[in-house]
Design a protein around this nucleic acid. Structure first.
Lengths: 105, 105
DNA sequence: TCCTTGTGCAACCCCAGGGTTGCACAATGT
DNA sequence: ACATTGTGCAACCCTGGGGTTGCACAAGGA
């Protein structure tokens, strides 16, 4: 996962509706856009757009099943993004600690 | 850190310019809005807005020093957000695993 | 005192993107 | 064959928010 992919993940997660969709998918395992639209206060088309964004970020994957497309959540990607953020935080911490040390000497 | 605070963190991090500002603060330890504006392709006012958002998310803190306001990054908050995301991913994983088990039986 | 420099505030521009409607097409049930 | 239901696509609306300019005020330095 490179920098621009992390960008995509963060941007995708910044939307409340999208996080709600992810929660729904985590609950149900799999669901179609139409099914999700019934559980969310927006139209199916809006849901499709969100799923497209989530797919672009790798947070969701879809597969055709007959005439419908079933989506599932991908926790691995979320976990990966979380690890990246944690690593970044750790890097900042050491850096800031070093700056503080120098300032005090 | 409650749900709406996590919302704020994610929304704040969704902006490339804001992440850049965080990186700069992590590098320098402390910096004023005007100083940051010289390292970034936007005006000081835009930087101030971003810093306000970051402050609202708890990712940054400012203190007055004479006539200028110095900001510093707060890695703890980032770390906290990362942990929350990781926990969420774990919850999804167990849930999806359970669904899969049921489906196969 | 005057000049410089950093803030704060307000009005404004502009567009990305979240949301909608409308319609055409595909797959399933009866 | 026909009605039903789920997708896909395109045009469109509209608000949020990133960015700007302009100006007034505060705090140091000469």
């Amino acid at each position: 996962m490179n920098r621009s992919e992390l960008d995509a993940v963060l941007a995708a997660l910044a939307e409340p509706t999208r996080r709600q969709l992810l929660d729904l998918l985590a609950e149900r395992g799999e669901a179609s856009a139409s099914a999700l639209a019934q559980a969310v206060p927006v139209t199916r088309q809006a849901v499709v757009k969100h799923l497209t964004v989530l797919d672009g970020a790798g947070l969701v994957a879809g597969r055709r099943a007959g005439r419908e497309v079933l989506y599932r959540a991908r926790p691995e990607r979320l976990e990966e993004a979380a690890r990246r953020m944690s690593a970044l935080a750790a890097a900042w911490e050491t850096r800031l600690a070093a700056i503080k040390r120098i300032a005090e000497s």
